[in-house]
Amino acid sequence: MLKIVDLEVAYGQMEVLKKINLEVKKGELVSVIGPNGAGKTTLIKTIMGLKDAKAGQIFIEGKEILGMPAWKRAEMGVGYVPEGRRVFGNLTVEENLRVGCYSLNDTKKIQQNIKKVYELFPRLEERKKQLARTMSGGEQQMLAIGRALVMEPRLLLIDEVSMGLMPIMVNLCFKIIKDLNDQGITVMIVEQNANKALKISHRGYVLETGNIVLEDTVEKLRNNDVVQKAYLGG
């Protein structure tokens, strides 16, 4: 589904990602964990097309996507839930979801997909006429996920879903991500909350200062001494 080969990304002279290799297979749920500043968000932005790569290749379903604008990648079925939610605060909940459907042209399909999101998050339907910025952090996170879901992504990129949320919301978000994956959506999550992320994933990568230092199934990662000490508080 997603294959990254020798990806290098830099901000000016500063190398943020150094020859990253990573793969997410169809139907998988993969986490990338690592400390603050390791380059996790940069990685996800580069896949989405919001940050240019210096070298390397990114393939989605076998097709090279580097150089493609972000909206083309979205049309190809890449959904994005950004760090810090970034809902359109001056638009209503419903308008946010309609923006998410922008690349769809079939009105009936748009309504169907929005309805599906409302079924998943009844809270959003209750507030559909409300401006997004007046909602709580948890509700905004639901909206950010919903906005990515309405265009039926085949690959969902999720950046720090737990950030700034109450524990109960964090659990709900991870449960929903797991459910979405069970329904067949391939998911890659980037997360500081390693414990929660590894619980729902199939495989994990550990990213430290721009390098992938570990890659394994979650069972093995959870039993790894280094991971336990550094990320799981063991």
Partner: peptide
């Protein structure tokens, strides 16, 4: 709608499929 979304957050507008 695309205009208002782009005016508010151009990066995210692109990432949700708007040709800005």
């Amino acid at each position: 709608l695309a205009w208002r979304a782009t005016a508010e957050d151009a990066d995210i507008a692109k990432a949700v499929g708007i040709n800005t």
